[in-house]
Amino acid sequence: MLRETPHEVVLLGLSDAWRDRRASTRRHLARSGPRILPWLFAEFAAPRLLRGNGAVGPLGAAALERRVPPTTTASVNSAATQGMLEALRPDLIVTCHFDQILAPATIATARLGGINLHPSLLPLHRGPMPCFWAAADGGNAHLGVTVHRLVPRIDAGAILAQRAVQPLVGATVSATARQLHLVGAELLLQVIEDIADGRDLGRDVPLLPYRPFPTRVDLAAAAKRGVRLTGWADLRAARALGGTLL
């Protein structure tokens, strides 16, 4: 998407996934048990660890082409980050696979607010692992992506666009998430053009319950039904996507 958009990109911000890794790992283990560890590794650690020193992934290469070096932030709502955004004066904030909640003051630094890509058909499966819950709830029967307005509540803003997606047969949760983000990138580009042209047709929908990280019981029950969180192919994909700039 970074390559395809015709609009100027003034900042590429990355959330520091390592900012509290020990504390967050302990929390995940306490709630989800050891079954969650391979998924956490594939999603967060593998993209950095499975490539050689100096390697540049697709995001890093696109950033170099656009001459917008990635900026990693441990707190998107810090005074430093807000000051940087205020100086750059962006028209629109776009988030994707970003694990921090933007405060109202942060969103307000952009003239047109912000939008987010979420890999579910909202209001279904709000939360950090929507692809798991889609599989656990009904075999991916309600699989898709949503672009919605950023608000200071997780996956709760007005819906701007949605697209249903046919799941890949036998795909892991990680593979399904990659598939949805690829489809979602196209949807994001469409929504950005709609907003640029003054077409903002967001619609509010009643919120459904937030779906947090699964418990040990949730993961065990899903495994019995054949739901796989991740596999070797996902680690290879993480290696291909990773790099020192990610």
Rank of each mutant, 00 (worst) to 15 (best):
R48P: 02
P38K: 06
L11H: 06
G52V: 08
F44A: 14
A17V: 12
G13D: 06
G13T: 00
E43N: 13
A23E: 13
P38S: 07
L12E: 03
L50V: 11
A17S: 10
A46G: 12
A23Y: 02
L49R: 08
G54I: 05
L12W: 03
R19K: 15
L14T: 02
L40P: 01
A55G: 10
G57D: 14
F44K: 12
D16L: 03
P58Y: 13
R19G: 08
I36Y: 01
A55C: 10
T25M: 09
H28F: 04
L14S: 04
W39K: 02
A45T: 07
G33L: 02
L50A: 14
G52S: 14
T25P: 01
A30F: 04
G33E: 03
A17Y: 00
L49S: 12
L12P: 06
G33H: 01
S32T: 02
L37C: 03
G57K: 12
R26S: 11
G13W: 02
L11Q: 04
S15M: 06
N53T: 13
A42S: 14
L40K: 02
G54H: 08
G13C: 07
R22M: 13
L37Y: 05
L11A: 14
G57F: 09
A17L: 10
P34T: 04
N53R: 15
D16Y: 00
L40A: 07
G54W: 08
R48N: 10
S15Y: 10
L29T: 01
A30V: 01
D20S: 11
S32D: 02
T25K: 03
G54E: 10
P38Y: 05
W39A: 03
E43H: 14
P58N: 15
A45K: 05
P58L: 14
P38H: 07
A17M: 05
R51C: 14
V56R: 14
D20H: 11
A45P: 00
P38T: 02
R26H: 09
L40F: 04
R22S: 12
R31G: 07
L14A: 04
R48W: 13
R27K: 13
F44H: 15
R35W: 02
P38D: 11
I36E: 00
D16K: 00
R35E: 02
D20T: 07
T25I: 04
A55M: 12
